[in-house]
């Protein structure tokens, strides 16, 4: 029990952020129309590419060759996730944009 309490105190800031972000995440997308399910999924897919920051940190402090190689691969994979994710989402949404132009002309 004491271990748990200690753990909570030690990481209280992170725990607060985690809990609040969970509620925020639920709230933010709770009214999304079905049409946008796919682009939203793709967009949030790009956002978790933020893991690349970890890859950059780990590579930035890599000393031996193995970590350098693994870090290099990790940064490439993370970049793929970020760039690919955002570009694919943009391509999906680009197609929705046309209806906005169509509407005022009606």
């Amino acid at each position: 029990m004491e271990e748990i309490l200690k753990f909570f105190l030690e990481y209280k800031e992170a725990i607060f952020i985690i809990i609040l972000s969970i509620f925020l995440g639920i709230e933010v997308i709770s009214h999304v129309p079905a049409v946008l399910h796919t682009p939203l999924m793709s967009g949030s897919n790009a956002i978790h590419g933020v893991v690349i920051i970890g890859a950059i940190i780990v590579m930035g402090h890599a000393e031996d060759t193995l970590s350098l190689v693994l870090g290099f691969i990790a940064v490439i994979l993370g970049t793929l996730n970020v760039v690919g994710g955002f570009v694919v989402t943009d391509r999906m949404l680009e197609m929705f944009k046309k209806k906005k132009i169509d509407k005022p002309n009606k």
């Binding site: 992170a14 952020i17 949030s44 978790h48 933020v50 893991v51």
Partner: peptide
């Protein structure tokens, strides 16, 4: 998203933490 957030926890990195958890929770709802 949750995996990325764990990375944020490890590095005490708030951008990774919020970004990851946001995707984790909104992704679950989605």
């Amino acid at each position: 998203g949750v995996a990325a957030a764990m990375g944020g926890f490890l590095y005490n990195n708030q951008a990774m933490l919020t970004g990851g958890i946001l995707v984790g929770s909104s992704g679950t709802i989605l």
